[in-house]
Design a protein around this nucleic acid. Structure first.
Length: 687
RNA sequence: GCACCCGUAGCUCAGUUGGAUAGAGCGUUUGACUUCGAAUCAAAAGGUCGUAGGUUCGAGCCCUACCGGGUGUACCA
């Protein structure tokens, strides 16, 4: 369902007419006028034509006259009712509204035929998101990553792409090591003790919450209890020793680390699952190390000369990636160390190896085993260093992971510099790939408003209180845990449902509340453009009114309620009427009268807005900006709410008018539901 | 120092690639439930688009300089 084809056809016609009558001209796009009275699509090309005429032929022409000359060609096109020349030379096209309605209803029946350009080999898109350090509960900042990534995945799938979702697990990093230090040196626990502790924990304070607190304690521990003090080098040695033990593997410390990381990943998946966020595969850093991915990437980097060995200077005995611009006084200032002087590899190096694998350019693969299964049977796989041994594992083969034609990495903007290094490394090794095969999908962080910070019980200095926002800190334990926030949203939603729909069963009430909470939270995180920093505020995040997910859901619920009261036969007849418009001129004329009459522009405007979902989705996929889809959905919901308020549909007495209203409401509710689904938000029965 | 991001209504933000009269939400004020549900709708007030130049038919958007804020710039991950 879209009007894009018509728009594109008109654009092509404009161009060919210009070339025929005036000068050579680039492809024209057409744009949506700011107001319905100005038409359905506008071509402000006359100014450019006048300029080109002057430049290329020395002719002086009036833009208005040029627009007039193009008008006739457009008026001859099918689907066009009339064309106006406005202002200094705008060419405004008005569609035939009856014909458009017929077309929209007709095409909405066919399941959106995906453009299967080449069935032989469909390329795969990989999206990597979430990537939370597996050492504590997820906070709202982590959630922004997950929601952004998951929504982008849904957008890509809506455009027909095949998408693989990866969640990278850094199970051998310092953050995990810190919690291991906490268990071993603060709590004096070994693996068995931690296991027993884990089993004894209550749902109010599960394992990831426990580790959240412990991690904050470790931060203090390194500072000998003084939050403002310096870290004690002697205690920091515990961290590096632990880290080395984890990387080496095959020892009690590494086993404890593995237990913690695995359990926390389970918690994270459960948390994300509450919002419908899912994964296909969990590549782990431990396997990148043990399967020697880095060694292979290292060789490739050396071969291509992307990195070089320093024999002197401050980076002596390191492998560095030279900076491409030398702005500092010392030209080595900006060089990035990839391999340290002690021979170990930095994060950037490991990430280059991982990216190469994702693009199918490393020449190595992981082994896999099932990690968990969602209720619908979908399996999440995790990497492992051992080939399958027993028969059951051999029989249960994973899909082919990695080898994407394009890779999106959802990573916050603070890591732009490092990501840049990684991109350069990848491009040096595989120069033949399409431009930017690996895309950093960056976004700003979520910080806390001073009020939110105090609500969490953190004392603020006068200086902090004056700041626009306060950065969350896992080390200080300062942050809004995702599960806490969802719990509050669900409780609030349940409260509302309870007062509005006392007749529902407790299960129905809870399910409705859950859906509303998900809608509120996902929309809250999606309505901001990626490079807008979110200063988290409880009042705003907990709101169900105004520009929120529940507002959009409510519009869809209302639309559905119309059709619950309408018998199926009426709907079928209404659709048949719309489809038959092409064959009945009197009916078509009656429909035109309705759109031309009182409030007709408003009806038409709602219809065209609903028709633009596919176009918007494609744009969101191209620009990787899910906020546009959120805005679109809200605007459609808003327009529908107005329509709903202005018109009584079932009670409408004029038969033709009633049929038109039914068709509009039907198309809008379907598009609205589809838009929400792409945002990961479903529509409850009642709310 | 250098690099990137940001500066639009009281607050928080959009502004779809340079188009027509600058848009939402929240907050404030005021109206609308006997209706397909008011988690809604309508109306009002609120703007020197940080400042100063420039580019052109046209600039919130592009260029230059400056002012103010943020984030990076590790032999951390």
């Amino acid at each position: 369902m879209n009007l894009l084809e018509l728009q594109q056809r008109l654009g092509a016609r404009v161009r060919s007419t210009i070339e025929e009558k005036f000068v050579s001209f680039p492809p024209v796009q057409g744009e949506i006028p700011p107001r319905t009275e100005l038409g359905d699509v506008a071509f402000p090309v006359a100014f450019e034509v006048a300029k080109r005429l002057k430049q290329e032929k020395g002719e002086r022409a009036n833009p208005r006259a040029i627009a007039e000359a193009l008008k006739a060609a457009l008026e001859a096109e099918a689907g066009v009712a009339r064309v106006e020349v406005a202002g200094a030379g705008y060419l405004n096209v008005f569609y035939d509204r009856a014909q458009s309605l017929q077309h929209l209803v007709d095409s909405s029946d066919a399941p959106a035929a995906l453009p299967q350009d080449d069935a032989s080999e469909k390329s795969k898109v990989i999206v990597e998101h979430t990537n939370i350090n597996p050492n504590k509960a997820a906070h709202i900042g982590h959630l922004r990553n997950g929601v952004l990534g998951d929504t982008f995945v849904r957008v890509l799938r809506a455009t027909g792409a095949t998408v693989e979702v990866q969640n990278y697990i850094d199970n051998t990093g310092v953050q995990v090591a810190d919690v291991v230090v906490g268990f071993m040196h603060i709590e004096h626990m070994a693996l068995e003790d931690v296991r027993r502790l884990d089993e004894s924990l209550t749902p109010e304070r599960p394992f990831d919450y426990y580790c959240w607190d412990l991690y904050a304690q470790v931060g203090l521990f390194y500072r000998r209890g003084d939050a403002e003090g310096k870290e004690d080098p002697e205690l920091l040695k515990l961290r590096s020793d632990t880290l080395h033990a984890i990387e080496a593997g095959d020892n009690p410390t590494a086993e404890l680390a593995d237990y913690i990381a695995t359990r926390i990943v389970e918690c994270h998946l459960k948390t994300m699952g509450r919002l419908g966020i899912r994964y296909d595969v969990l590549p782990r850093e431990s396997e990148i190390l043990s399967l020697r991915f880095w060694d292979r990437a290292f060789g490739r980097l050396k071969e291509t000369g992307a990195i070089r060995f320093e024999t002197e200077g401050r980076n002596a005995n390191c492998w560095v990636m030279p900076a491409d611009s030398h702005t500092g006084t010392d030209e080595h200032d900006a060089d990035k160390i990839i391999v340290r002087s002690n021979g170990t590899v930095t994060y950037a190096g490991k990430d280059i190896a991982y990216q190469l694998w994702k693009l199918g350019e490393l020449g190595l693969d992981f082994y896999y085993k099932p990690f968990q299964q969602y209720v619908d049977g979908h399996v999440v796989w995790v990497t492992t260093s051992q080939p399958p041994t027993d028969e059951a594992m051999v029989a249960n083969q994973p899909p082919k992971f990695g080898g994407g034609s394009i890779v999106y990495n959802v990573i916050d903007s603070r890591q732009s510099y490092t990501q840049d290094i990684v991109q350069r490394g990848v491009q040096a090794v595989v120069p033949g790939l399409a431009r930017e095969p690996s895309v950093h999908l960056s976004y700003e962080m979520v910080a806390l408003s001073p009020a939110a910070s105090e609500e969490l019980g953190f004392e603020l200095s006068a200086e902090d209180r004056a700041r626009p926002h306060i950065e969350m800190s896992g080390r200080k334990g300062l942050g809004v845990k995702v599960d806490d926030l969802i719990d509050r949203l669900e409780a609030n939603a349940l409260n509302e449902v309870d007062t509005r729909h006392a007749e529902l069963s407790p299960e129905e009430k809870f399910e409705t509340a859950r859906t509303i909470a998900t809608g509120a939270l996902r929309y809250f995180l999606l309505k901001w453009t990626r490079n807008s920093l979110i200063a988290f505020d409880f009042k705003e995040a907990l709101s169900f009114e105004g520009e929120t997910g529940p507002y959009c859901q409510y519009a869809a619920v209302r639309a559905n309620s119309i059709f619950r009261k309408l018998d199926d036969d009426t709907l079928a007849r209404a659709r048949a009427f719309a489809k038959g418009l092409a064959g009945s001129e009197p009916d078509a004329e009656a429909v035109r009268q309705i759109f031309a009459g009182e409030g007709g522009d408003e009806l038409w405007s709602l219809l065209t807005q609903a028709a633009r979902l596919e176009e918007t989705t494609a744009q969101v996929a191209a620009q990787a900006e899910p906020a546009y889809l959120a805005k679109y959905t809200f605007q459609l919901a808003k327009a529908f709410n107005l329509f709903y308020h202005r018109h009584r549909i079932i009670a409408e007495e004029n038969e033709t008018r009633r049929v038109v209203l039914i068709n509009i409401a039907d198309l809008v509710r379907r598009q609205l539901t589809a838009a929400l689904a792409t945002l990961g938000i479903s529509v409850p029965e009642r709310m």
